[in-house]
């Protein structure tokens, strides 16, 4: 960009001031003229340097710039925002998507459990998450990471996420980690603008249009559950999942946080999360923690269940268990 030549320009002016006598009378006037010239150059360079940024902001609509927090929008305003976002997706990707804003179901609090005796680390859950949630294709982004752990040890230091050999390895067990939807979520506490919060049904959500992108939540999360959009995710137009939720898998802008929402757009519709449906080993159990007859409650009551990093006091709604 322009700044490096700017150095040259100004310094020539400065040296010119020393050597060339300009057609002005008196020391002060010449200095003033030089100063004005330098200031003009500086302002011009400033404008040139800031131009891409200013252009970007100028291209944003006032509604987008001034949109209020999700919780402060009434239903009409939410509908308007959703329409705007649907139109944006249509313009950018040529795809008709439906963005729904499903409210939490009454009397429901979601819980998730994974049977570590069964999970074999094949990673199909990651793939399903990747597709369902319109993740960035280049980075194979997903909200799940599967850890290959040493049998007989819970030390993640001995674990690995980058294994590529056929699974399961006889010496290992496999532990998928995603958002634990904590009851005492450190990520929610630290957010300076309340852009992330816990919904009534236990799901911790992010308002992508309110997040300022400080990434404090990412530092606070002990489960590596949060992801930052370092750039706008790239998804081929024909691969975009058109069933979208405002608080979950709609197309995210660059520079905001996102996270697993237990596929909020599915589960609030009564459906199972995508990762559960995709699991070829059936290791995943999902359900309503408040319903005493639910599968998840049976697991909690009858299996030896543990919570990841329970000592941190995050009180997850996500559980792990072994069969034997």
């Amino acid at each position: 960009m322009t700044p490096p030549p700017e150095v040259q320009d100004n310094s020539t002016v400065d040296s010119a001031g020393k050597t060339v006598s300009l057609p002005v009378i008196g020391q002060v006037s010449r200095r003033t003229a030089l100063k004005a010239f330098g200031a003009t150059l500086g302002i011009a360079a400033f404008g040139a340097a800031a131009k891409p940024m200013l252009e970007k902001y100028a291209s944003m609509s006032p509604e987008e710039m001034l949109q209020r927090h999700y919780k402060e929008l009434d239903s009409d305003e939410r509908a308007a925002v959703i329409n705007r976002l649907q139109d944006e997706t249509k313009v950018r990707h040529g795809v008709d998507v439906t963005i729904r804003d499903l409210p939490p179901l009454e009397g429901v609090k979601y819980g998730y459990a994974i049977n570590l005796s069964v999970c074999n680390g094949n990673g199909e859950c990651m793939r399903a998450c990747h597709k369902e949630n319109n993740h960035d294709r280049e980075s194979n982004q997903s909200y799940i990471r599967v850890l290959e752990m040493q049998r007989g040890s819970m030390d993640m230091e001995k674990g690995s996420t980058t294994y590529t050999h056929p699974v399961p390895d006889d010496d290992k067990f496999y532990m998928p980690v995603q958002c634990q939807q904590c009851d005492n979520p450190p990520c929610v506490d630290v957010c300076p603008v309340e852009a992330t919060w816990k919904e009534k049904d236990g799901i911790v959500v992010v308002d992508y249009n309110w997040c300022i992108g400080c990434r404090y939540c990412e530092a606070a999360c002990p489960y590596h559950a949060r992801r930052f959009n370092w750039k706008a995710p790239t998804v081929p137009d024909d691969e975009i999942n058109p069933d979208q939720g405002y608080l979950s898998n709609r197309m995210r802008p660059a520079g905001v946080m996102e996270k697993c929402t237990f596929c909020l757009h599915r589960v609030r519709d009564g459906r199972l999360p995508a990762c559960l449906e995709a699991c070829p080993t059936g290791a995943r159990v999902f359900g309503n923690l408040l319903d005493p007859d639910s599968e998840i409650r049976w697991v909690l009551a009858n299996k030896r269940v543990f919570m990841l990093k329970e000592e941190l006091g995050t009180q997850p709604s996500f559980f792990y268990y072994f069969d034997e």
């Binding site: 902001y57 300076p192 603008v193 852009a195 300022i212």
Partner: peptide, 10 residues
């Protein structure tokens, strides 16, 4: 910040 133009949220 990922979105410095949203500083007013703070």
């Amino acid at each position: 910040l990922g979105h410095p133009e949203r500083f007013w949220h703070l």
